[in-house]
Design a protein around this nucleic acid. Structure first.
Length: 208
DNA sequence: ACGGGGATCCTCT
DNA sequence: GAGGATCCCCGTT
């Protein structure tokens, strides 16, 4: 089992940048979470940016409410919300506090704590563990009780990408507004990326 | 492979 | 009272 040293963790400055950049740079980073004695880890392969301005699909678009409160916190804050009455989704807050911007974590390649994730998910199929935001939240047991906590602590942090993967861009999935913004980022050709269908037509590959 | 529908509930209008 | 930043199952190609 690999070691996941907290002293190498991404710091607040990493998250306190333009949301699109954070979303893109998070690809390849390793999410580490400790639940009791169990270490869970996965490599981020898919993200979406939700902006502070001019983004009608963002929860912050109509201002601060009780639900989206955490989205206006410090960079590196965990924002969890319930979706479709059934699932939860986990985000990392970006930019300066009070801005209302975040990156939705959409898919991971499982690296550690796989048996624990399998139990959480009720399936053994590696590809089905974290290949979508609801699945990811269930596999890692993200729930509203963690809403507002931080990705800058020993029980929950990120390790930088060892190499920058080739990145594809598309419209975001499952939205009905701002469908033409190219704000979904994923590792080209990676099999742990979700099967979600982008809500708009835009598609591109980022040049190195 | 792809597509439609059901599950289920909290927040905001 | 409507409508989601979704998932899974079952149907049809």
């Amino acid at each position: 089992m690999t070691n996941f040293p907290f002293q190498n963790a991404l710091s607040r400055e990493f998250f306190a940048r333009a949301t699109e950049k954070v979303a893109r740079d998070l690809l390849g980073a390793v999410l580490v979470r400790r639940v009791g004695d169990t270490v869970l880890a996965g490599r981020i392969v898919e993200t979406e940016a939700y902006l502070a301005e001019n983004d009608a699909a963002s929860h912050s678009f109509r201002g601060r409410t009780r639900r989206n409160e955490a989205m206006f916190g410090e960079a590196g804050t965990l924002y969890v919300y319930r979706i479709y009455g059934i699932h939860f989704c986990a985000n990392i807050v970006t930019e300066e506090a009070e801005r209302g911007a975040a990156v939705l974590l959409r898919a991971l390649e499982p690296l550690a704590g796989i048996e624990w994730m399998q139990k959480q998910r009720g399936t053994n199929a590696l590809q089905a563990l974290c290949s979508g935001p609801g699945k990811l939240a269930q596999a890692l047991a993200f729930s509203p009780s963690e809403n507002g906590t931080s990705f800058l602590q020993q029980d929950l942090f990120l390790l930088p990408a060892e190499t920058q993967p080739e990145v594809d861009v598309s419209a975001r999935v499952g939205i009905s507004k701002a469908v033409d913004l190219p704000l979904r980022f994923f590792v080209a050709g990676n099999r742990f990326v979700s099967r979600g269908k982008p809500s708009g037509e835009i598609n591109a590959r980022i040049k190195k």
